[in-house]
């Protein structure tokens, strides 16, 4: 088996992606989620790779697990999809049996249990972000070992290593939605520029009392549009 952890391969630097099976689809990724004045914003690039080959250039790495609880997936596409599916099932059941929508905490707790108990089998780095009436917006991160971190903002995936400086320099608490979108877009643009395993379009999801709103920014429009998808 080819060991790729922390190595400079011909397809770029691989960080933290560990033991992928040969041929396994990898989300060599740039993902992030931030708190802002009215809730949270999740953002991601759209590149999925199998080794040097771009298996999908318009991937959606922002996954809904409940109406206003979403996650950013990094690591093995198969593993993270499976975990997100299980969490979505649990949150759906929770909503029905308790007659009350689950909170971001509930989602984070279930994600963590799955990631920790199956840490030897999984290659999953997940950021959970959600909004609810009681707690407002919240961002939790679950890195490889399955620990759980509550954060003001969180970045993840191979591309994140390039933007620690950018984020630290530009982060502000209590940003407006416009400032938040600009921050996420600026950070992901840098990650895509420097990380060979990240690329394609920038996707975002804004979670507030209004619900979930999707944004799309295309490289051939210099990541300026089309922007929010208003139905």
């Amino acid at each position: 088996m080819v060991q790729t952890t922390g190595m400079l391969g011909e397809d770029g630097i691989h960080v933290d992606m560990g033991h992928l099976k040969s041929g396994e689809v990898n989300l060599g990724t740039s993902i992030m989620a931030i708190n802002f004045k009215d809730g949270v914003i999740l953002g991601a690039d759209s590149r999925t790779t199998t080794g040097a080959y771009i298996a999908n250039r318009v991937t959606d790495k922002l996954t809904r697990v409940h109406d206003t609880i979403w996650c950013c997936r990094s690591g093995s596409a198969a593993d993270t999809q499976a975990v997100a599916d299980i969490v979505q099932y649990h949150l759906g059941m929770y909503g029905i049996t308790n007659d009350e929508a689950p909170t971001t905490q509930t989602a984070a707790a279930i994600f963590q249990e799955l990631c920790y108990e199956n840490k030897d089998a999984l290659s999953a780095g997940i950021i959970i972000a959600g909004w609810d009436h009681r707690h407002g917006g919240q961002v939790y991160s679950i890195p490889l070992g399955g620990s759980l971190h509550k954060q003001a903002y969180s970045i993840g995936g191979s591309g994140s290593t390039y933007i620690y400086g950018y984020c630290d320099a530009n982060w502000k608490e209590n940003m407006t939605e416009q400032e938040g979108v600009k921050f996420v877009k600026g950070a992901l643009q840098e990650a895509i520029k420097w990380d060979g395993s990240s690329g394609g379009v920038i996707r975002m999801v804004v979670l507030t009392k209004r619900g979930a709103e999707r944004h799309l920014y295309l490289p051939d429009r210099n990541y300026e549009g089309p922007g929010m998808d208003r139905p």
Binding site: N35, F36, K37, D38, G39, V40, Q105, A108, A109, Q112, W131, H133, R134, H135, G136, G137, Q138, V139, Y140, S147, L148, H149, K150, Q151, A152, E173, N174, T208, K209
Partner: peptide, 21 residues
């Protein structure tokens, strides 16, 4: 009061979470 996830570390934004109803 708000109860965080048992065992979670960190506390989110210094100004507190935004968008509470």
């Amino acid at each position: 009061t708000e109860v965080d996830v048992d065992g979670a570390v960190g506390s989110g934004p210094k100004v507190g979470s935004g968008g509470k109803t």
